[in-house]
Write a protein that binds this DNA or RNA. Sequence first.
DNA 1: TGACATACTTAGAATATCTAGGTAATATAT
DNA 2: ATATATTACCTAGATATTCTAAGTATGTCA
Lengths: 112, 112
Amino acid sequence: MDKGLIGGSTVLMLLSLLQEKEYYGYEIIKEIEQRSNCIFQFKEGTLYPVLHRMESQGLVKSYKATAETGKERKYYQITVKGKTQLAKEKEQWNAFTISVKKVLGGAGYACP
Amino acid sequence: MDKGLIGGSTVLMLLSLLQEKEYYGYEIIKEIEQRSNCIFQFKEGTLYPVLHRMESQGLVKSYKATAETGKERKYYQITVKGKTQLAKEKEQWNAFTISVKKVLGGAGYACP
DNA sequence: TGACATACTTAGAATATCTAGGTAATATAT
DNA sequence: ATATATTACCTAGATATTCTAAGTATGTCA
């Protein structure tokens, strides 16, 4: 999958997942992989920095916990700010995909 | 409109336009602006380098001509390689948007 | 014991876009 | 006549982002 395409939708997908429940990073990678039928396969080096950035922006918050398996995990939760951002990004996503379709389809209207 | 989103679809949109007919750079900006109802407003500094890159990759070729208005224009035409690439990018675009929908929608299947 | 999956991290390379400026001609409004 | 806006192209450098690649550590299975 082309990297250019993924870029703009990563945060949208992460926020959408985290609105359902809290996830830890590694779990997110696997979940997105499954849901997309392996179309999206995030590398750890790609995803973790994105989560860190989102946390620094206040879109998510995290806490550490040791799982029954003995491994330490960092769980991420969406914040109020994150939910607001999610709504915005969903809107943008819709406007974006509709607009691309229009350009490909050939429709044409004058701009205000 | 978020820059991240646009990135991956720029070449797709350009190739799609150029399959219809030849365009010059400035005309492409206006055409995409109109078709998208002003959702996409490419800056010249953004579009021209993309066209140059596409030409260096052999996806398009160009020639210069002076319009009746007295202004010199650089017209771009899609190449055979560009048409092949267009087909690929269309496929990728579909796979991409479907996958994002799946992630947002919550569907989940095991990967092979 | 060795290989693999889990789980997180970061530094630096590579890539891409945008900002901001430049050039130059014509058209339009004052 | 002059100022401004539109048309039409270009590029250097700042900015941002992603990916590559490596490191750390634990548990499981053959």
